[in-house]
Design a protein around this nucleic acid. Sequence first.
DNA 1: GTCGGAACAT
DNA 2: ATGTTCCGAC
Length: 318
Amino acid sequence: MYCNCFSEGIRAAPVNYWISGLAFPDWAYKAESSPGSRQIQLWHFILELLQKEEFRHVIAWQQGEYGEFVIKDPDEVARLWGRRKCKPQMNYDKLSRALRYYYNKRILHKTKGKRFTYKFNFSKLIVADCPPWKVWTPSTPCLLLRPPALCQTALVPVAEQSEPLRSMLCTRATGTQPARERTPPQPPEASGDKDSSSFSSFGSVLGPGWQNPCCCFWNHQGDLPSFASFAPVPCLCCNWAHLSGPILPPLSSEQPLLESLKPGPRLPGPMWMPGAWHFPGLHLLARLRQGTEAPEVPQAPGIGGKSWPRAKQAPGFQ
DNA sequence: GTCGGAACAT
DNA sequence: ATGTTCCGAC
């Protein structure tokens, strides 16, 4: 049930609603309690604020640290959240308690020593596969096709993402084979990423019969992918390392992202092949693949188990 | 400020 | 399940 509180300030987000170019998967919304009008979750709300220029004085991404953000005005953020949730008594103490519940879910963690500073575990939220130059189709809206099953998808145009999320999407890769070659998403034990199984993946795939590149989202539980087709641009599927580590170190904030991520000169090879493009972060990807930057987080069951470990209970993230 | 337990609400 | 409210501890 929506209250009318969101008429002021930022809007509430219905199912698969696009927020400044960012759509969240259905599973991220509450399924119960109010069918048909799932409520936004706090971390969505935070992302929403972070996406919007007008709230930059209230909450903003921390430069140089992907996924890290600072609540510059805790009272205001709490007020906005309270307004959204029709909880006029909301304050930062309560909001921060809700944020702390995200620690165990590993949606967020606290940046120690920095006041009001938290960091999203983006690498756990979405796994990206499409190189930006592949997805970058500014003139063409993304077409979201939803197969009649399982996958509720998030489609995130690179062009419109906030910087950390975009960077994450541009640097986090998984599953690079064409669909018919792709092995099913690795279980946490096999992939080494104990968490990625929990989330819908943002993958690149040439689905059967697809002439154009598309992005495929799948969850690690349902095997039916849902396809999000982009404009017919040449597929430059690259053989990125199948990552299992955390997001990559940040690029220089001065470095234009898309510029930095444009495909470099094609590496010499006997024939054209996907993956022959030089990607500036490839060595980092390789390092990650080698496990030199393995995530420090302990294992957590994924969406398959629909829950994370917790001291007394195992909250889900679905 | 931050943390997390506990009871409670939706 | 996901907060909200309260609160004691650090």
